[in-house]
Design a protein around this nucleic acid. Structure first.
Lengths: 426, 426
DNA sequence: CTGAAAGCGCTAACAA
DNA sequence: TTGTTAGCGCTTTCAG
């Protein structure tokens, strides 16, 4: 109002400090910084200073500007500010399989950290290689984000080169690439930790179930955990039986069938180390199906310590999921602030969380299972279920009502997978 | 190179078509559209057309421009384009408790849809009222996103007014607000569905466990499900026993203690309807702890059909989580494209998924539990566990090794909650 | 402490 | 089909 009196030529809308916008079909006008400046009787520079909390504004002026802002319902444009500033204050997070518990946990950690640092977070979900390529290309071909946080996703050389060429700062979490800062988990140590736990309990035949490396997105953590497993066995002078190692697709169901195969062997393992809790759940299901008491007849160790692990009292290797995301995000922010990130690779610690799914190896000299805390047990059996078995003896085990399984009514919407998902707390 | 020959005055960097940027501490120059135009010997308009796939460019020119783009490693600025265009092509998603399985499922659906529509998605996680306010204020005070998708979060009047004033398009999913388009789930019908299922099985005393409405973020779905539960009971002429309804904080553990309280009562329910699968897990845990066989002695119905539900063979009300997010996102996109969104409220259908956690009500005229598919069972008991119990009779149930619970060794990292989380598949 | 003015890099309208 | 030009709304010198 009343501004622009000295301008020549016809007043454009911009001169009036408003801009037309089409939204929801109605024509609305949005105030600009110029309108605020005019309304407050100051220059745009001053308004900008107020907006950015610059101390170099007198309280009186600041107040006047603030009043004008509310009066006009002015909303500064992030885009314009960014363009002027030269950055977006946005970072992109690349996650594989967003819905996996371990992934969301890291994501949540990263978002929290970035939010605190004043960054917007755009989430790119990747479920296959072509989605990965799509996002990586989009992120490098156009300038959308100030940096990228890549979670649990292997970065093929081509993309590394793209990233390099585009000079987009990137940090990885739970995965690594040459010359790229990363926040990692010592999966090798985790593999050792889990396996050593089982060895301590006297297990000699220990199975391993993990992700297939052939998976499109090539997760590498399984490999490292497997290496730790091998190492631990070697330390005890146990030679690795390749038959005991089963790699397949991720997921509870796949792990279940892997485990079933393992348990069906003549010399089946007395313990299984699953490379993730999700897969450990499948192992428990298989044990249930094979009527192996856990931990009396089969010990199970998982990895991650997702919520379900605690609920199912699964012994597992806990990794700091939320924290890993947060740390990775922090490193990226530091890079953007030109602060040093050292060391290049930050390795987070792991912790074994012993719960009730692991116990001493069954005493193979007797055919009767232990009924109490003998054999130096560190964790007595807790289950009513177990008690029943102990009382009634081994001959109790053969499934008397197996036929019921076959005659299970078709469950609406449960599909063919239903029958194989047989473990439950009841 | 070689451009600007007709310009007057000293060449600025902009004239040269490059801009300085400070990244990772090194000084880099980024090509601009002007540089590309010069290199290709065309005008910026043409480059812009190529960038936006305008058909009005001759193949030859297009090729020359493309070549220049790669040669210069040019990356168009999303910010500048957006500023010029007048929109951000970004939408913000507000989610409560990002890590909850039902929430991520919706989020994933929304992100997929938005990605397909060419929108970036910034995720705002909300864990308490002040975070909610923080994000809602930030989203309205500055122009950051073209629209907001609000998932499962109640919008207080103040915020609705802000939103209105700022004229930010918003769509809600799994929650509703006056005059705001929403994609909803018919939770009332879901409540009826679950309860009717139990009534059909002959249950008369049916407990209800759900979120406390007093929760800071005021989720409303529990209330609606509860209303459905009441309605179903009323239809059967069963008067509601308020003692059977327990509302508390969300989460497996809280639900477990609620359920324990229910099961500890003299006249305890024969079935429990939990307002979410997460809470149903707690009910199962409580049943395990109370040594009630599921479903013989206690039937349990959940809600959502998250992955764990299938794994634990939990009977539940399935809602289209992923789809709800996608549909909500689509509606928002339609609004932004000035397409009509009708009806204002879109209601998605539910489906009961019967699994093994529900069965016929125990026959109260006898003290012996059914041992087979009698009483018109639709789902015979499947558990070896159950078989054991059936064979050994009721006197078998008193926990013989309860003391073991008390003497459970302190588990590293398991904390005080460990003892109460006692259900497991083994 | 404040104002003026020069960009930031792109899109779109207009003219050719 | 193509080039030119006028903004988009803000930040940031640089004077004063």
């Amino acid at each position: 109002m009343g501004c622009g009196g000295t301008l020549q030529g016809p007043l454009t809308e911009a001169d009036r400090g408003v801009v037309d916008v089409h939204e929801r079909g109605q024509r609305v006008e949005r105030a600009t910084i110029a309108a605020v400046a005019a309304a407050a009787g100051v220059g745009v520079g001053t308004v900008s200073r107020v907006l950015n909390d610059s101390p170099a504004v007198s309280p009186a002026t600041r107040e006047r500007v603030r009043a004008a802002i509310t009066a006009l319902g002015y909303r500064p444009s992030r885009l314009a500010a960014g363009l002027s500033r030269g950055n977006t204050r946005t970072i992109a997070i690349l996650v594989p399989f967003l819905t996996r518990p371990s992934v969301v946990a890291r994501l949540a950690g990263a978002i929290a950290e970035l939010d605190a640092a004043g960054y917007d977070t755009v989430v790119c979900n990747v479920e296959n290689a072509s989605q990965r390529d799509h996002h990586l290309i989009a992120l490098t071909e156009r300038h959308r984000a100030d940096g990228i946080l890549c979670i649990s996703l292997a970065l093929p050389r081509v993309h590394l080169e793209r990233l390099d060429r585009a000079e987009v700062p990137i940090v990885t979490v739970d995965t690594r690439a040459p010359r790229i800062p990363s926040t990692e988990i010592d999966d090798f140590a985790g593999g050792v930790l889990a396996t050593a736990h089982l060895l301590h309990l006297g297990h000699q035949r220990i199975g391993f179930i993990g992700d297939d490396r052939g998976s499109q997105l090539g997760f590498t953590s399984t490999r490292r955990r497997l290496r730790g497993y091998r190492q631990a066995l070697a330390t005890q002078g146990i030679s690795l039986d390749p038959e005991l190692v089963r790699l397949g697709p991720h997921g509870t169901e796949a792990a279940e069938s892997q485990a079933s195969a393992l348990l069906g062997r003549a010399t089946s393992p007395t313990a299984i180390f699953a490379a993730s809790d999700t897969q450990a759940l499948g192992v428990l299901a298989a044990a249930e199906q094979a009527r192996r008491a856990v931990p009396e007849e089969l010990s199970v160790v998982g990895y991650d310590d997702i919520e379900a692990a605690a609920q199912l009292r699964l012994t597992t290797v806990r990794q700091p999921l939320h924290e890993s995301g947060a740390r990775g995000a922090r490193r990226l922010v530091n890079i953007l602030h030109n602060q040093p990130v050292r060391p290049l690779r930050e390795i987070l610690a792991l912790e074994l969380v012993p719960r009730s799914s692991t116990g001493p190896a069954p005493d193979r000299t007797r055919s009767v299972r232990p009924t109490g805390p003998s054999l130096g047990m560190t964790k007595p059996p807790l289950r009513g279920h177990d008690v029943d078995l102990a009382r009634s003896g081994p001959e109790h085990r053969p499934a008397r009502n197996r036929p019921a399984l076959a005659t299970e009514p078709a469950l609406s919407g449960a599909g063919p997978g239903a029958v194989s998902r047989r473990f439950a707390p009841y």
